[in-house]
Amino acid sequence: MRISLIAAALVALPLLTACGGSDSESNITAADVSKALQDGGLKDTKLADCAADIYVSEGISQDGLRLMIKNDIKSATATDPESLGMTKEDSEKAKNATNRIVGECLK
């Protein structure tokens, strides 16, 4: 009986690891960021798409984008991105993106 339990655990471990890793490893796309903006209350789809494209094109890391999506992106743009846990580099990129959004998407 004990051997059967150990064998089952050894078989299940790679499956659980693969399942758990796939979500955290998936790349955040502009479509994901746009959806997060819209879910956060931005009703203008065109503006959400424009802003999302800029956030991604600024080169914010995948970890930074995950933090933005996790922490209501609407409030992330209004506060200091470093307070959300972003690195200094990602924080600077997010600030640059916000400035670009104001100039390029709100025409």
Rank of each mutant, 00 (worst) to 15 (best):
A36W: 05
K74L: 15
G85R: 07
L65T: 03
S57W: 10
K74A: 10
D72S: 15
L65V: 00
K70G: 01
D63G: 07
I69T: 11
I54K: 04
E82L: 06
I60D: 01
G41V: 01
G64T: 07
N71W: 08
A36T: 01
S75C: 00
L42W: 03
C50R: 08
G41T: 04
K74E: 10
D63Y: 15
I69P: 01
L37H: 04
I69S: 05
S75D: 09
I73L: 13
A31D: 14
K43H: 11
D63L: 13
K74V: 15
A36S: 12
I54S: 09
C50Q: 06
I54Y: 08
T79R: 11
S34A: 12
A31P: 00
R66F: 01
V33F: 10
D49N: 12
L42R: 04
D44V: 12
S83L: 02
A31R: 11
I60Y: 00
K35W: 01
V56S: 03
L47K: 09
R66Q: 02
M68N: 06
G40H: 01
S75L: 12
V33P: 01
G59H: 14
A52C: 05
S75V: 14
Q38H: 13
A51I: 14
G59E: 08
V33Q: 07
V33S: 07
K70F: 04
G59D: 10
A36C: 03
D44S: 10
K70A: 09
K43D: 10
D39P: 04
L47M: 08
D72P: 00
L84R: 11
P81K: 02
D44Q: 10
P81W: 06
A31T: 13
G59N: 09
D32F: 08
S83Q: 05
G64M: 06
S61Q: 06
I54F: 10
A31G: 06
I69A: 11
Q38A: 09
L37S: 04
V56Q: 02
V33E: 05
G64S: 05
Y55P: 00
L37P: 04
V56P: 02
Y55V: 15
R66P: 00
A51K: 09
L67M: 12
